[in-house]
Simulated scan of single mutants.
Amino acid sequence: MEIDILIEDDRWNSLDFNGLVEKALAASFLHLGIDAEAAEISVLACDDTRIATLNGEFRSKPVATNVLSWPAASLAPDVAGGTPFPVLPGPDGSLALGDIAIAYDTCAREAAELHKSMADHVTHLVVHGTLHLLGYDHVRDPDATLMQRIETEILGKLGLDDPY
């Protein structure tokens, strides 16, 4: 697994951020039957200011959010609630998945509001962002039901409670 992690906000260093990301990705790939060794992904650990800028640039919503994802390819199913299309390997066999950005301020606030540890909440959000890279979404109700079920299954295998 090739993970490019960029930590822009030093507060992330209070967690084992790299370890949390690796654990969440490995569990997600194992659950979905994806070759983790071939996977390539980038993760940006930033603050609310940076994620608000990214959210404004890419989604025309200039406000902070917890996690953003930029899939390398559109894998979303045509039918609501359907399984996303599989990730196709590149010529070298790699699976370029895309990029995730996660904001410390929003994650810390949400974790406190939910009475969860920061590590558990960040793990959930990395799983959530990874599923977005793999074509899962929560805009349509059937898609949200599928995505939430898969998130809950992955988190359960990691010993974490159902976030929903």
Rank of each mutant, 00 (worst) to 15 (best):
V43T: 08
A108F: 07
H31W: 11
D161M: 15
D137I: 03
D10A: 13
D78W: 13
G93Y: 14
P86M: 15
V122K: 07
A111K: 04
L32V: 05
N13C: 11
D99K: 15
H138W: 01
G135D: 05
D141H: 09
H121F: 15
T49A: 07
E2Y: 08
S14F: 06
R11G: 00
G81P: 04
W70A: 00
I5N: 13
A108Y: 06
M118N: 01
A24S: 04
P77K: 10
T49S: 09
G129F: 12
D120E: 07
N55H: 12
D105Y: 02
R11S: 02
A64I: 02
D48T: 02
L20A: 04
L95P: 03
V21D: 06
S42G: 10
L131Y: 03
V79T: 05
E8G: 12
G19M: 03
E151F: 12
D141N: 14
D35Y: 02
L6T: 15
R59S: 09
P91A: 07
G156W: 04
Y136M: 07
A52P: 02
E153F: 13
P62Y: 12
L134C: 01
L155V: 06
L6K: 14
L20F: 07
P71F: 11
L44A: 12
L68M: 13
S28G: 03
C46N: 07
G33E: 11
S28Y: 04
W70L: 06
A108P: 05
E2G: 08
L30K: 15
A108N: 10
P77A: 14
R59A: 08
I3K: 03
G56H: 11
L54D: 05
N66E: 09
S117E: 07
P142W: 12
L68P: 06
I7H: 00
L146G: 11
L25P: 00
A36L: 11
D162C: 06
A108K: 08
I7T: 00
T145K: 15
A80Y: 03
H124V: 02
Q148P: 06
H132C: 04
D47A: 02
S117Q: 02
D141W: 15
R59T: 00
P142C: 11
M147C: 10
R140E: 13
S42P: 00
P91M: 04
L44K: 10
T145F: 06
L125C: 01
V87Y: 11
T145S: 02
E113F: 08
A52K: 06
D16L: 03
T130G: 01
V79Y: 02
R50V: 14
